[in-house]
Design a protein around this nucleic acid. Structure first.
Length: 322
DNA sequence: CAGTGTCGTATCTCACCTGT
DNA sequence: ACAGGTGAGATACGACACTG
């Protein structure tokens, strides 16, 4: 491995100067003097031979190189904190940590209910946010013990797949949006809307092939926001419409800040899977949690064809505005 | 509030010594 | 011969005082 030019203290320095806006505030947070942090910053820039911050008056702003380092710093530092906690727990041999990742959506409103259902106090469930982007890679790299993914099952020798649920994709919009008046929506309804999606790379969402491509229609205005959670905020603010898994937006549907409508008269559903590494034994903590997730999901479906983690209810009429 | 110069302290490296 | 301890010198780091 190549010799690293930066150390953990440099990463935390970049993170807190960027977060807090000044060297003085960051130094205070890190428990060193402003002078020490200025030295540390200059040393990091010297080692990398690139400025990490631009100076405007008394404020510091990340350069493109700084931005790149910042994103890694946040990820590494958060991971390190979690790892220390895991190791600490393992050292005490009090609890077993099972790390759970979720493909695409970092939405965990279902989590407290599941922990209660699981009823295994010796198991500590930890959330791995980075799994949202590449869940299977995160699992295979050993950074998560369980991930949930949607779409087609992709057999790999190193993975075990358990079917979790078949959950509807729904069109989401602000309650005041004209589409909220419809019983269901079609590809035509999106043509003149601003369609907000989280990514067009490496491939557009499932709805792209199942809805827009087959209908030979597509939205004229598309905004890529990168984070599914941001879609919810933008749609709720009336800045566009989108298509997401119903379970992911169930809290907003329930509190009436979003309206969800089925895709087409028959609806459009998506398979969800829970995946663990193949080497996990049937009685291993990750497999126990995975089986519990499947059982819990089935219980909550209550005979309907919808929802993995969302509340039971008629999604067509659940929050139809009066 | 950021940056600089100076100085004290902590840490690291290396050579040497000692005990087994 | 080897492992571990000790001390000197080099280097890195941070604090203080100060400037712009």
């Amino acid at each position: 491995m190549a010799n690293l030019r930066l150390e953990i203290r440099h990463l935390s320095m970049v993170r807190y100067i960027a977060d807090l806006g000044t060297v003085t505030a960051a130094a205070d947070h890190l428990g060193v003097t402003q002078s020490a942090l200025t030295h540390r910053l200059r040393e990091a820039e010297r080692r990398l031979n690139v400025p990490l911050f631009s100076r405007t008056g008394n404020r510091l702003f990340l350069t493109p190189a700084g931005e790149r380092l910042y994103s890694t710093a946040v990820m590494v530092l958060d991971d390190l904190v979690r790892t220390e906690e895991d190791v600490s727990l393992l050292g005490k041999q009090q609890r077993t940590v099972v790390r759970l990742g979720q493909g695409t959506y970092n939405r965990f409103h279902w989590f407290p209910g599941f922990i209660e259902y699981l009823g295994e106090p010796e198991l500590e469930l930890d959330i791995v946010a980075r799994a949202a982007r590449e869940p299977l890679t995160t699992l295979l790299d050993g950074l998560a013990d369980i991930v949930t993914v949607h779409g087609m099952r992709r057999e790999r020798r190193r993975l075990r797949w358990l079917r979790l649920a078949n959950d509807p994709l729904v069109a989401i919009m602000a309650p005041s949006h004209p589409m909220a008046e419809r019983d269901f929506v079609t590809a035509d309804d999106f043509v003149n809307e601003r369609y907000i999606t989280y990514s067009l790379e490496p491939e557009p969402g499932f709805e792209w092939t199942r809805l827009f491509r087959s209908a030979r229609q597509r939205p004229r205005r598309i905004s890529v926001v990168g984070v599914p959670e941001a879609i919810v905020d933008l749609v709720r603010a009336g800045l566009g419409v989108s298509i997401l898994s119903q379970w992911a937006v169930q809290p907003e549907i329930d509190d009436g800040t979003l309206v969800a409508r089925p895709i087409g008269q028959a609806g459009l559903n998506l398979d969800w899977w829970v995946v663990v590494r193949a080497e996990e034994g049937n009685d291993s903590p990750p497999m126990r949690v995975a089986h519990a997730m499947v059982a819990w999901s089935q219980l909550r479906q209550q005979g309907t064809a919808q929802l993995a983690f969302s509340q039971p209810g008629d999604h067509r009429r659940a929050n139809r505005p009066e």
